[in-house]
Amino acid sequence: MVDRASQLRSSSSWVAGMAFTSPWLLGLVALFAWPFAASLYWSFCTFDIINPPRFVGVENYQRLAAEIASGRGAGKALMNTVYYALLSVPLSVVLGVLLAVVLSAQVRGQAFFRTIIFLPSVIPVVASSVLWIWMLDPDGGLMNLILGWFGVPPQNWLNQARPAVSIEGVAQIGGWLTGGPLLLMGSKDALVLMTLWGVGNFVVIYLAAISDIPATLYEAADIDGASGVRKLLHVTVPMLSPVIFFNLVMGLIRSVQTFTSIYVLSAGTGQPGESLMTVSLRLFTSAFADFEMGYASAIAWVMFVGLMFCTVLLFRTSKSWVHYRQ
């Protein structure tokens, strides 16, 4: 009798538990699990929303592989995304840490400076992107005006496909040093600049982590006669490494998923010269402009697997450079 009563109690608590979690579970199944599975199936189909999906095997993946191999279409999008991620993520980390270190100094107006740095993060992406289009206008934009004060020639920014970090970019610098024009910064560099402007989110996390570093470590370093730079490199950065690692992973995922700003900057076209055609925009145009849902699903899956691979790789390498406090 006791066992039966216990069974009943346990079964009714299971039902109650399920009833309470069912809204979330329903959401999970309808909005996550089902689309996840459907997109995997669609990636092997040709599908345009209107007509039923038609199974075409690995054709979408073959097309994707061919485009990546030729460097055109999705291949071009992948190269653009890699360029953006490789530049924006490390620069965000470096700038974020440096700003956090500076902002953690006990100076007058500390709260004001922290607010200034964080403010861009609360501006809606669409609004800030439109603002940046204005500021980066090659003909009369604020950015070129500021560069002009320092003797730097006006840049083409969003009108130029060629990126700064490239062989042609190096050639530009060489030519400039010998009296030629300097047109270095292109559309992808403008995008990186915009990302760095919104680094305040990361800074807040670094600031919290810095305040958590035991003062005794700095005192010990002072007794050992360590300079400010040494304390930064041998105390602050190692103690921040778990947070840096977190921001690195999140920054990588965010950089690959960046869409809104690119959509606004290029009016959804990825122009000029497809220089802003990133993987996420390519996915979007394939799905909602060309109605190739199958191909878009294949892009999404390759993007997902690629991100998983990079994240796992980061986790593996983290053992050698991330220091967790014992």
Binding site: G140, N159, Q160, P181
Partner: peptide, 17 residues
């Protein structure tokens, strides 16, 4: 080529354009 890129019609939706 760079002149053509930079001296395009520009974004005429921008204020002042």
């Amino acid at each position: 080529a760079d002149n053509l890129a930079s001296f395009g019609q520009g974004d005429q939706s921008l204020p002042g354009q």
